[in-house]
């Protein structure tokens, strides 16, 4: 029973770290319509910055600085926000899909950098001994697990609360206005590029924070943790949960992570060891198919964004399309 509860706590804590990434992506995609294909890069930056600042001094690489965990988390969010702002400033004024290509490349470069800058990141060996919250309690797995769940849960709730507040604020309304009709928003004097840039940086900051929280929960990070598959997972979580809806983002993260973990366990149990790498490719096929199916059949996801446009306007759009065809 105790084992079950501590496994449950472990599972839920990890799922919530993905939920935070998903909330960050929701600011960018769900609210603003910015397509970020480099989620793994921003998460990775957060994880490495925080690990570098909070680990004890290591002889074979630069740092660590042994700072408190909270400092690491804040610095992670700031670093990821700066990276997003830089990337956004270059691409957001151009056509919408250039951002997708640039973020795709950005993730490749972050991956290469953490792999190759061995003096800074530990290279392929990664960084271990990242301080874990409540590390002193680690001898009692149940208490330790529950305390960590409480901390990560609190961070998730805080991010959720802040985002809900932001989305209801004039700022959030401008974002949705730009997403729905950029010309109309510009005509009202809103600078679309500046608002997009802000939303992109806020989303990036949240992803960086999520990376840091996850790194500290696991206690070890390495370049393999930030490969493109992470980006795909987070995307699947947001799309399935319902982009535009913060509660959907959290629910989607937990649901997709549960399916992912369960199918991983099933593979380990039923597939012979030499075929497992092959079979795990099918898990990724599943994610790809899920993304396509949701786009085709249920574009709003499980919990879609609540309609903000009058349905008459939507019908008028259909009517115009009928005429055109």
């Amino acid at each position: 029973m105790i084992e079950l509860i501590s496994y449950g706590a472990f599972f839920l804590t990890l799922a919530l770290t993905y939920a935070i990434m998903c909330l960050g992506l929701n600011v960018q995609w769900g609210q603003t319509g910015l397509f970020n294909v480099g989620v793994a890069g921003f998460v990775g930056i957060g994880a490495y910055v925080s690990a570098l600042l909070t680990t004890p001094d290591a002889p074979d690489r630069f740092g660590g600085f042994d700072l408190p965990i909270a400092v690491g988390w804040i610095a992670a969010a700031i670093a990821a926000a700066l990276a997003s702002a830089l990337l956004g400033a270059m691409t957001l004024r151009l056509r919408s899909d250039y951002l997708a290509i640039a973020t795709f490349g950005f993730a490749v470069v972050v991956q290469l950098a953490v792999l190759n800058l061995q003096k800074l990141t530990g290279g392929p060996f990664g960084i271990s001994f990242i301080p874990r919250p409540f590390g002193a309690l680690a001898s009692d797995p149940l208490v330790f697990g529950l305390c960590n769940l409480a901390v990560v849960g609190a961070v998730t709730l805080a991010v959720y609360g802040a985002l809900e507040h932001l989305m209801r604020s004039p700022w959030g309304r401008v974002l949705r206005a730009i997403r729905e009709d950029e010309q109309a928003a510009s005509a009202l004097g809103k600078n679309a590029t500046v608002f997009r840039l802000q939303a992109f940086a806020v989303g990036g900051a949240i992803m960086g924070l999520a990376g840091a929280v996850q790194g500290h929960f696991i206690g070890y990070i390495s370049p393999e943790g930030y490969v493109p598959i992470l980006t795909f997972q987070v995307w699947a979580m947001l799309i399935v949960g319902g982009s535009g809806n913060n509660r959907g983002a959290i629910a989607g993260a937990i649901l997709v992570w549960a399916i992912w973990a369960a199918s991983g366990a099933a593979l380990a149990a039923f597939i012979p060891a030499d075929q497992q790498a092959r079979a795990s490719a099918l898990k990724i096929v599943m994610i790809g198919v899920a993304i396509c199916l949701v786009l085709l059949l249920r574009p709003r996801g499980l919990l879609g964004e609540r309609a903000t446009v009058s349905r008459h306007v939507e019908n008028a759009g259909d009517h115009a399309k009928d005429k055109a065809s």
Binding site: G33, F35, V37, R95, S96, D97, A100, F232, W235, A277, R278, A279, A281, L282, K283, I284, V285, I287, G288, V289, A290, I291, C292, L295, P299
Partner: peptide
């Protein structure tokens, strides 16, 4: 919109690539 098409391509890429990995191994 354009970006939905980009995303569909992204989903298709994921599916096609992993199918190859499943059929021919890496």
């Amino acid at each position: 919109s354009t970006i939905i098409l980009v995303m569909a391509g992204f989903g298709a890429a994921l599916t096609l690539r992993s199918l190859l990995e499943f059929i021919f191994t890496s």
